[in-house]
Structure formats: structure tokens, C-alpha cells
């Protein structure tokens, strides 16, 4: 009987700690920035889903393409209809790992360097990426930040000749997610 109750307690503890291992947000920020001598284009998405597993380092993102807001309505239209074809490919995703998750002390406030590797899928095309970022642990919350570049041609995005000079071949992506412990 004692063994049984001990087992139940152990399972309950295991489940309890498994629950407490995830940090999530549903309102993460991703911005992208295209800069050419002719014009700068900035778009902002504030509805990004992200989850980080503090034990395994699993790190995922789900990004709705139609949630990117541009300054100009026309740019937003072109982006959705011509470049990323968001009706056909509504989500961009990242599924990967923080490879040095053990270096991050989630119990201690501070800024930690992170290396994130995994599969980035945009417009149905998946590429392996490896990027640097930081995690700031602040009173039990985790703020993840990274800036990196992607080449539009890697993801099969074709820019027509007429506007080829207006849109950069390499787009800067800024990620800023404020992850909270999943209760």
C-alpha cells in the first residue's frame, strides 16, 4: 500500500514538473525589414505563437502570414497575394531546439546567450537554420530575442523585375517574444 501511494506521489510530481516546464506566448512579436536605396519596407506581426520547453530546449513558432501589418495597404496586398501566397500557405512555422538550453538558468535573473537550430518553413519551403539570440530571465518570465536574415529566394519567393530594386534580397527578421510559464 505504501509503495502504491509512493508511486502515485512520484507520478503526480513528475506530471507536475512536466507541466511547469513550458513557457509560452500567443502575442509574440516578429518584424521584418527590407531596406533598399529606393525604399524601406517594415511589417509587424504581434500575434505570434511560441512555446519553449525549459527541459528539452524544444522551441516552436507559429506565425500567421495575414497578421503581418504593413504601413501601406498596397504592400500588404502584394505581400499576401504575390510573394508569400498566404491563401495557399497561411502559416510560417519554426520547429527546433535551443541547443545550449542547459546554459540557461531559469531560476536566476539575467541575460543568457542562446543558439537556436531547426526547421524554418515559409511558403511551404523548409530550410534548416541556426541563429544566435538571447533569453532574458526576469522574475520567472523569459524574453527571447533574435535578429537574423533570410534570403527571399531560399523560400521560392519571386520578386518581379519591375519592383526588384524596391525589395531587398535579404530580409532582416526581428523576433521578440515574452514567454510566460504555462500554469
Amino acid at each position: 500500500m505504501k509503495i502504491l501511494s509512493t508511486l502515485i506521489l512520484l507520478v503526480a510530481l513528475a506530471l507536475g514538473s512536466a507541466q511547469a516546464q513550458k513557457f509560452i506566448t500567443k502575442s509574440g512579436n516578429i518584424r521584418f525589414f527590407s531596406s533598399t536605396p529606393i525604399e524601406d519596407i517594415l511589417a509587424h506581426n504581434r500575434q505570434v505563437n511560441s512555446a519553449l520547453d525549459q527541459q528539452t530546449g524544444d522551441f516552436v513558432f507559429r506565425v500567421l502570414m495575414k497578421s503581418f501589418q504593413f504601413e501601406k495597404a498596397l504592400m500588404q496586398e502584394h505581400f499576401n497575394e504575390n510573394y508569400v501566397e498566404s491563401d495557399k500557405f497561411p502559416n510560417a512555422t519554426f520547429t527546433g531546439k535551443v541547443t545550449n538550453i542547459k546554459d540557461i538558468d531559469f531560476a536566476k535573473n539575467g541575460v543568457y546567450n542562446a543558439i537556436v537550430e531547426g526547421d524554418l518553413t515559409i511558403k511551404g519551403v523548409t530550410k534548416k537554420i541556426s541563429e544566435k539570440g538571447t533569453f532574458e530571465v526576469k522574475d520567472g518570465k523569459v524574453i527571447g530575442k533574435s535578429t537574423f536574415n533570410v534570403l527571399v529566394e531560399d523560400y521560392g519567393i519571386k520578386i518581379p523585375g519591375a519592383v526588384a530594386k524596391n525589395i531587398a534580397k535579404s530580409i532582416q527578421i526581428d523576433v521578440d517574444v515574452n514567454l510566460e510559464k504555462l500554469e
Binding site: 500567443k26 500575434q47 505563437n49 507559429r62 506565425v63 500567421l64 502570414m65 495575414k66 497578421s67 497561411p90 502559416n91
Partner: peptide, 12 residues
Amino acid sequence: CTGYNETDVILE
């Protein structure tokens, strides 16, 4: 409606 991200449907 901007879509469904496997957890939620988003309206903006």
C-alpha cells in the same frame, strides 16, 4: 480573420 495557428483562430 487572419487564420488558425493550430491553437487559436485570430481576428484582428
